[in-house]
């Protein structure tokens, strides 16, 4: 059976190579789509985690600090009953280097407190006019930028500090962020709390970090659902490609199967040959796709993080899909009549 399968693959190699490449492109897109959805899900969790807070205190009616405008008096910090707490400013702003401003989420943090950036290069902003930026802005340490029109120098870089599908964080010391966001140092966005939150005055609510993560993800749910739909469509395209080639192969080999049936070969062994062909095409395409996605993913404007699990889940699903898609071709084998072997030349 293996020899029969292998020889047929070699005999019709042009067709199988073309189909494998086509399926590989589809599977590569599936890898990338999976990576995008994974990144969307990971992004807020990683970003929120870097604040080091267990709870976020916000004004009542504010769904989450990254998805709605949150404003509260700075004096509210003293009313929050918690062992470790720190004020934070979170607002949308822009960073420009030259004429092209880029949208950022401005984070105002208290030095050495919760919410301070975890820089991977350079240092944490410690003086007036200093900013730390997420790496995806592609601006190096020591370079000059403007934040909301005010000049700053980049002193540090952070990683995995983006939300809402790639909007990067820009970290400033709290007073400068307050002035840029509210033109007042009497106002903050939220209070970050490490540990349990005790009593809260009226008008304030506490959200866990998990709540903040899920609320931050909410605006992307439509995009994630759309990508999931595209993934389903890509699976259907892959199934059609693999199914079509298996069906064509079954059609081409109908006489061969009739001959082999006539000499006593069982349906099982012939089905096995066709099924193995479908599985080999699917696995070959997935292997090629795993290579293609390495080159394809960086071309996407958004970060693509293909989860490790996808590298075994996708082949497994591809095999199941190939067997299902090849079923029509395999039915052809089951129905092939050994008396066809006696028919004249094809």
């Amino acid at each position: 059976m293996i020899l029969l399968t292998f020889r047929d693959l070699v005999y019709r190699k042009t067709r199988f190579i073309v189909v494998t490449i086509l399926a590989a492109v589809v599977f590569a897109l599936l890898f990338v789509m999976t990576g995008l959805v994974n990144q969307f899900n990971l992004e807020p969790a990683e970003a929120v985690d870097q604040f080091g807070a267990d709870a976020w205190v916000l004004p009542e009616g504010v769904s989450a600090p990254f998805t709605s405008v949150s404003v509260m008096p700075a004096a509210a910090l003293d009313t929050v009953d918690a062992p470790t707490k720190a004020p934070v400013v979170i607002t949308r702003s822009s960073v420009a280097q030259g004429d092209l401003p880029e949208e950022v989420v401005l984070i105002g943090f208290e030095s050495d407190g919760l919410g301070a950036p975890q820089v991977v290069e350079g240092r944490v902003p410690a003086a007036e006019g200093e900013v730390a930026l997420d790496r995806t802005l592609d601006i190096g340490v020591g370079e000059d930028v403007t934040v909301a029109g005010t000049p700053f120098t980049v002193v540090g870089l952070t990683e995995a500090t983006t939300v809402l599908a790639g909007i990067p964080f820009a970290y400033l010391r709290l007073p400068e962020a307050q002035m840029l966001a509210f033109t007042s140092t009497d106002v903050i966005s939220s209070v970050l709390v490490a540990g349990a939150v005790g009593s809260l005055p009226g008008g304030l609510v506490s959200l866990t970090s998990d709540n903040v993560v899920s609320q931050t993800l909410q605006p992307l749910e439509g995009a994630i659902a759309s990508i999931d739909l595209v993934r389903v469509l890509l699976w259907i395209v892959a199934a059609i490609i693999v199914g079509a080639v298996v069906y064509l192969s079954a059609l081409d080999r109908q006489r061969d199967f009739a001959v082999l049936k006539a000499v006593g070969a069982s349906n099982g062994s012939l089905l096995g040959s066709l099924a193995l062909q479908a599985v080999l095409i699917a696995l070959g395409a997935v292997a090629l796709a795993a290579i293609i996605q390495i080159f394809l993913a960086p071309q996407f404007p958004l970060p693509v993080t293909v989860p490790t699990g996808a590298f075994w889940q996708l082949p497994l699903l591809a095999v199941v899909m190939a067997l299902a898609a090849g079923a029509i071709g395999m039915r052809k084998v089951l129905r092939s009549d050994p008396s066809q072997a006696f028919a004249g030349a094809a």
């Binding site: 029969l4 020889r7 047929d8 070699v10 005999y11 019709r12 006489r255 061969d256 001959v259 082999l260 072997a341 006696f342 028919a343 004249g344 030349a345 094809a346």
Partner: peptide, 8 residues
């Protein structure tokens, strides 16, 4: 008839 050998 027509041999019906498997071409591959």
């Amino acid at each position: 008839q027509a041999f019906n050998l498997i071409p591959s």
